[in-house]
Design a binder for these strands. Structure first.
Length: 123
DNA sequence: ACGCTGACTATTA
DNA sequence: CTAATAGCCAGCG
């Protein structure tokens, strides 16, 4: 459930506060459940939320993730191939890879090695 | 209000 | 293997 915070406001614009009452918040909740050392994919989250065909919206939600609280570990969300497709949306393009490596992962050429072994299915 | 874009994915050629 | 296509839908000019 949702704690009330001063940011709560039905602002429709992503520029201010998009989440709060939709798909976005659900995505954040799921992503925050990803255990350290594990990763998942946009599609897996979308499918878990019942919107398999809307995986793009998961990525869009991640675009707004950095501004929500508590923080969302967006670096643990990759595409279905284990590619760090969202790296350029971080504060620093290599931050995503560094965070993952810091959690014990190995990335080569934007590809997370052993992807299937560290994949975490939303549950 | 309309059209383009995109942190995706599955399918087809 | 790569490339093109379709489906999804929120945000922005």
């Amino acid at each position: 459930m949702k704690a009330k915070n001063p940011f709560d406001k039905p602002k429709k614009s992503i520029s201010a506060k998009p989440s709060q009452d939709s798909f976005f918040e659900l995505v954040f909740v799921v992503v925050r459940k990803i255990p350290e050392g594990k990763v998942t994919s946009y599609g897996a989250i979308a499918e878990f939320l019942g919107t398999r065909l809307s995986a793009r919206m998961v990525g869009w939600a991640m675009n707004a993730a950095y501004r929500v609280h508590p923080p969302v570990p967006a670096h643990r969300v990759l595409n279905r191939n284990g590619l760090l497709t969202g790296k350029h949306h971080f504060h620093h393009p290599d931050l995503m890879q560094e965070l993952l490596e810091n959690e014990g992962h190995t990335i080569f050429n934007d590809q997370l090695q052993n992807f299937e072994k560290v994949f975490w299915q939303p549950k």
